[in-house]
Design a binder for these strands. Sequence first.
DNA 1: TTGATATCATTTGCGTGCAAACGATTTTTC
DNA 2: GAAAAATCGTTTGCACGCAAATGATATCAA
Lengths: 152, 152
Amino acid sequence: MSRDENNVTLDDAGPDGNAYRLQEQIGFILRKAHQRHVAIFAAHIGDLTPPQFAALARLRDVGETSQNQLGALVAMDAATIKGVIDRLKARGLVTLSRHAGDRRRLMVGLTPQGREAVERLVPLAKTITAETLAPLTAREAETLARLLGKIA
Amino acid sequence: MSRDENNVTLDDAGPDGNAYRLQEQIGFILRKAHQRHVAIFAAHIGDLTPPQFAALARLRDVGETSQNQLGALVAMDAATIKGVIDRLKARGLVTLSRHAGDRRRLMVGLTPQGREAVERLVPLAKTITAETLAPLTAREAETLARLLGKIA
DNA sequence: TTGATATCATTTGCGTGCAAACGATTTTTC
DNA sequence: GAAAAATCGTTTGCACGCAAATGATATCAA
């Protein structure tokens, strides 16, 4: 063996070992991990999606807020949060009202049923988090959450 | 201070500190991290989505495969991969043909343009991975990929 | 005050992502 | 070989998620 000492990779790679394997890319793994979490969520909470639950849970914490503000709190743009809120409204879990001082704002609040739903589902949500992290040790789960938070 | 020694949490929590904060749940952080990655992807590769690129990249690695098989390789169910392939087909990046021995199978292959697109985009894809991981050290990135892989 | 700009919300269009039901084709089982 | 079961693909319906365009209202500046 004279030249070509970098002959370590398993498949096509340039002379500097610069292969591109989809399965190793962070975006691909991220998508799969997210998919698994959604599946676990659906298995435990069948009648509410993760975004819907997120909106309810955040609403419980911060109280009545404008629709777009709530969207910012749960990482949804204006178009997306609108659909989520519409569906929660149709199920009687939130109330909508115009802001007194600013007629552009659409205020969103929890109904008693909405609040009851959050309280009832929080234990399940904890289970979902635990099951998602089940393949990891407590220490690893801590690390994952921290690193993921950095790139989120 | 006599009882209630666990008084550490910042907001509502039971006597055993069991608060539920949405922002700390792995599913929520996962969704946000995924969103950021998709945004970075779109900023670099505007005319192809991550799933579309994933299908092309995997197709380059494994050669001609059936539609559902390819779906399994890129973590998409039958309904989803169909839409992705349809759009790639419409853009002349893949070819479709019936399998000789099994007339149920729809074989998918790269066209010359499809192959050219993959080769051209792989460097950009590497940049996208790097930018997504930019907030982390090389060591942290390694750890994140490993832990994420465990829960994916 | 008015005119420009910013903000809040809505709508449309497109692309995932999944469940469920379906038809067509194998493969298995008896 | 015929019935039953499995596999491959398609279609429909629903729910995000985002870009872009639009209308209504508020705020800022001249």
